[in-house]
Design a protein around this nucleic acid. Structure first.
Lengths: 223, 223
DNA sequence: GCTGGACCTTGCCCCTAGGGCAAGGTTTGA
DNA sequence: TCAAACCTTGCCCTAGGGGCAAGGTCCAGC
């Protein structure tokens, strides 16, 4: 007949958690001794460890309660599903780690070599720092979302920036940031940009978020 | 100049979450348009993706805020630490999956390998599930109260169970659970058990609660 | 011009899985 | 014997939002 502290220590939880499970109706309230202390049996210890095992697997306590009342087949099916979830979670964790690593690289201002080269080219063309900053931000964003797409698109940009027409268009867009919104030159620039874009082959986009982002970039071009 | 809904969709979060980050001071409040709507820029999108990346890695929002204000070296050190945590989490996940699998396999976990081996031996001897369950419960309890005593005693049991005489006595006790209380065979079994016990060397008991428990086990033998 | 649906705003309470602390009573080991 | 370490209930607090209310706004179609 162990106390709540011993039970908790055995299962590696706090006494608070044990009381919480009582309140939730997950763990049966044991009888009290003469001083009002809860006195637990091995049954409780087993139940508690089961609760913890499931809870650590990310199963909500309400679901744990249901599972305890479920039939053997239902329980086993649930366990299988829970394990599938865990596997998915592991995969997610792996991807998160990749993104974290990129975050470190991105904040170092160490965009990929290709992006850095592209930004250098822009600087050479006399593009303003403000524009280069925007460009860099967008590339960091694309890289964080989809490195594969980023590689594809930056290669395209590096190719494009050798085209004198694109260079001129780009420099004009930079200047256009200072034009008043109703400036008639905007329309001409948009037409020129669209005509130039129409000549370029379309690139595939794997990640829909990137499509969104590129649309945003285009909007910037058309605004 | 995107709205909160577009920003949220881009980062894969809800508008509520975005507002939450504003409230926490994590994400800068953007300027409002004439109707009071928040209008975001690419900067915000980048910051939001950073926030999500860190948050998904399990970094508390308060810590994310600190990190944004930290120096580059501090940030990189933190990222390294965060990745270590992720790695540890992945390892934990692996262990949780193992335990979940065991949960499905049956309930011979929650006990040490020695106890599991002992229970397996009992099963091999044809001891009933009911008896094995009782045995398991007692061992879980003993382990929770005093692991040192448990290790000592289970080693003794593992030794004893190789003795054909003890095997026979154990199997008879199992059967005795079904005998009526006034069955004359009880007396004979008790005598046999006591005689056998007398031949075994005494084991020390460190924790008085364990002595209690073992007494309870003995009582079961004598009942 | 009007209307409906999809946006946006703030504010409030709700959830999970407990943690912290208070203010008392009990048990235990030296 | 006496302090430390338990136990009890009760209350409020936390993160990271979700849901809903009660409005205001924007846009597309008729």
């Amino acid at each position: 007949m162990i106390t709540i502290g011993q039970l908790a220590a055995f299962a590696g939880v706090t006494t608070k958690a044990v009381r919480h499970y009582h309140q939730r109706g997950l763990l049966e309230e044991p009888p009290r001794d003469s001083s009002g202390y809860r006195r637990y049996t091995a049954r409780h210890a087993i139940d508690l460890v089961k609760i913890r095992t499931l809870a650590e697997a990310g199963v909500p306590l309400a679901r744990v309660k249901e599972l305890f009342a479920a039939s053997r087949e239902q329980f086993e099916a649930a366990i299988t599903e829970i394990d599938d979830n865990l596997q998915r979670k592991a995969e997610e964790l792996r991807r998160t780690r990749e993104r974290i690593a990129q975050l470190q690289a991105g904040d170092r201002l160490f965009v990929s070599a290709d992006v850095a080269a592209f930004l250098d080219r822009l600087r050479d063309l006399g593009v303003s720092d403000r524009m280069i900053q925007m460009e860099r931000d967008v590339w960091i964003l694309i890289q964080s979302v989809s490195p594969a797409d980023a590689a594809l698109w930056i290669a395209d940009k590096l190719d494009a920036i050798n085209d004198p027409e694109f260079q001129a268009i780009y420099v004009d867009h930079d200047a256009a940031l200072d034009w008043p919104p109703d400036d008639p030159r905007h329309t001409g620039l948009v037409t020129r940009s669209q005509r130039w874009l129409a000549k370029r082959p379309d690139l595939p986009v794997r990640n829909p978020s990137v499509a969104h982002l590129l649309t945003a970039v285009d909007l910037r071009f058309q605004q």
